[in-house]
């Protein structure tokens, strides 16, 4: 096993009496693409938010590149590219202004800033819309802006909450190819509802149900958990209590 870049230990988040994430532990090494699966409300986004340092855990720890996301938040975030759920952005800015802002915060300026923004725009195929205001973009294009923002500083760790949601089939194909291309150099977590995505890009998948990990295996290993061998059936049998 190569170097561990993401490490999560007994991570728990309670909202009042409700436990959204319940003692979740796993780690992700460089070269791995971890698919994060589970029904809505299973705790995928909350786990990712804790990892990004946005939601404070009720208990447990998470670290990125060896930095605790709470105690050494700024250092941890320097190593992290994060696409939040819904790909929020400053919608009153143009794509290139927005990416320049992110680049400056990430410590780039001058020619390097220009290169970084150009590179991120090229990777996510935003050349034609870079002068448009983000609020005028389609859902899929806005999602790619969020992705460009996460990739801009070429981080070791990528945490992407539904990166292909709202994309058309061609764009999905492109983004998956991009993720596969980057995979050997990074540790990547993507959450998704699209099970075929797991086969397409993930080296490993975790299924969450009611805040707990119910499966953690390679796509091949997961498919063996149900006699049909179909991921869809595995997913149902693990996340719907009564399903056979």
């Amino acid at each position: 096993m190569s170097e561990t870049l993401i490490d999560i230990v007994h991570l728990t988040k309670r909202f009042g009496a409700f436990t959204a994430v319940d003692r979740v532990s796993f780690s992700v090494a460089r070269g791995e693409v971890l698919g994060f699966l589970g029904p809505n409300g299973a705790g995928k986004s909350t786990t990712m938010r804790m990892l990004a340092g946005f939601v404070r855990p009720s208990s447990g720890h998470a670290s990125i590149c060896g930095y605790d996301v709470q105690d050494e938040a700024v250092k941890a975030r320097t190593c992290l590219g994060y696409l939040p759920e819904g790909a929020p952005a400053y919608r009153d800015m143009s794509v290139s202004d927005f990416l320049r802002f992110i680049g400056r915060i990430r410590g780039f300026d001058g020619a390097e800033l220009r290169e970084r923004v150009q590179h991120a725009v090229a990777l996510t195929n935003l050349q034609d819309v870079s002068r448009l205001l983000i609020e005028t973009l389609s859902k899929g294009t806005a999602r790619r802006v969020g992705l460009a923002q996460a990739l801009l500083h070429d981080p070791d760790v990528l945490v992407l909450d539904e990166p292909t949601d709202g994309l058309d089939p061609n764009q999905k194909h492109q983004i998956r190819a991009l993720i596969r291309h980057m995979a050997p150099r990074k540790a990547i977590i993507i959450s998704t509802h699209i099970l075929e995505e797991v086969d397409a890009v993930c080296t490993r998948a975790i299924i969450l149900a009611q805040g707990q990990i119910v499966a953690d295996d390679t796509p091949l290993g997961l498919s063996r958990l149900h006699h049909t061998g179909r991921l869809e059936d595995v997913f149902r049998s693990l996340t719907v209590p009564d399903a056979a």
Partner: peptide
């Protein structure tokens, strides 16, 4: 409202 707070506060700033 726009959710950009999540973006802003997960950038490497305090």
């Amino acid at each position: 409202r726009g959710g950009s707070i999540e973006l802003l506060l997960t950038l490497p700033i305090t």
